[in-house]
Write a protein that binds this DNA or RNA. Structure first.
Length: 281
DNA sequence: GTCCAGGACGTGG
DNA sequence: CCACGTCATGGA
């Protein structure tokens, strides 16, 4: 590995938890302990040995930014540590960090992530990249630009096993290609307005919008509620919620606003720690 | 085979 | 406002 960063004791970091928790879909861990993946047009390999982070394909500034190593994690964890349940999650996954991902990739990825499971999302994103992304070293492919995805037919996208999501990806990619400033505009807005902007994209509902805001726009009050998080929140904090069933917009907002009140302005980080330790039953 | 998954959308009440 | 059915796909 060409480059390295030595993490101080004041910079807790857990590479496995960060790349394995399902926030990014383009990383794989090899048997040698090395994670291989792509981010923002780079093919990167990275491994962690205690305080030593070794990597190729990017410089120290890029790695520091992508993994948010410049953020005071201890202060974040202290602020969300509101009860025994989140305390346990933090103890288990300590060092998990919310990435700073690329907006268009995050937007399309979370449209592909509706009503499905993580392995299937990874396959869709991989196929989109291999077929419409720029080749990178070592047989990797960058996630395609909006201008590369926009001309695709619905059938071509359906062939990337997008299923019924194909027309959503098609229409959203065209909107982005026609409006290259969309991400900069969203980045400049406060949470609620930014969320309203994202909800204009076909295939983006409340949950996907919150994921995009959390993972690509550093809107840390965003609290995505999927079936896992709903289950955890019902079991731990909101026992009056129905046992199961779909989530109405009202219930989604009830859960998310409770989380913001309970965990504070870094509720999204709490969400990632809870999601990381999710269990069946 | 059945059930479920990082849900969103259209329709009818 | 709400409830409900539907939408492909793959893994358990």
């Amino acid at each position: 590995m060409k480059n390295s960063i030595t993490l101080g004791t004041g910079t807790p970091f857990n590479l496995d938890a960060t790349l394995g928790c399902g926030q990014a879909f383009r990383w794989e861990k090899g048997a040698d302990g090395i994670w291989s993946g792509t981010a923002k047009g780079r093919a990167i390999q990275i491994r962690q040995d205690g305080e030593i982070l070794s990597f190729t394909g990017a410089d120290e500034a890029f790695i520091t930014d992508y993994f948010a190593l410049d953020l005071d994690l201890d202060q974040v964890l202290f602020s969300i540590d509101a009860d025994p349940a989140i305390h346990r999650a933090v103890a288990t996954c300590r060092g998990l960090r919310v990435l700073r991902q690329e907006p268009f990739e995050t937007l399309i990825s979370y449209i592909c992530a509706t009503n499905t499971n993580i392995p299937a999302v990874k396959k869709r994103v991989r196929l989109l990249s291999e077929r419409y992304g720029t080749p990178l070293p070592d047989g990797a492919y960058a996630f395609p630009e909006a201008s590369a995805l926009a001309p695709c037919s619905e059938d071509a996208l359906r062939a990337c096993v997008l299923g019924y999501r194909a027309p959503y990806v098609c229409a959203t990619a065209q909107m982005c290609a026609d409006d290259p400033g969309w991400a900069a505009r969203v980045a400049a807005l406060p949470y609620q307005e930014a969320k309203s902007e994202l909800l204009r994209f076909p295939g983006v509902g409340p949950k996907a919008a919150d994921c995009i805001l959390l993972f690509a726009f550093q809107q840390y009050r965003a609290f995505p509620v999927d079936v896992w998080i709903r289950r955890i929140m019902r079991r731990t904090y909101l026992p009056h919620l129905r046992e199961r069933g779909g989530m109405s917009p009202r219930e989604y907002e009830e859960i998310a606003s409770f989380a913001r009140q309970h965990f504070g302005k870094y509720a999204g980080w709490a969400q990632e720690y809870l999601y990381c330790v999710r269990e069946e039953e």
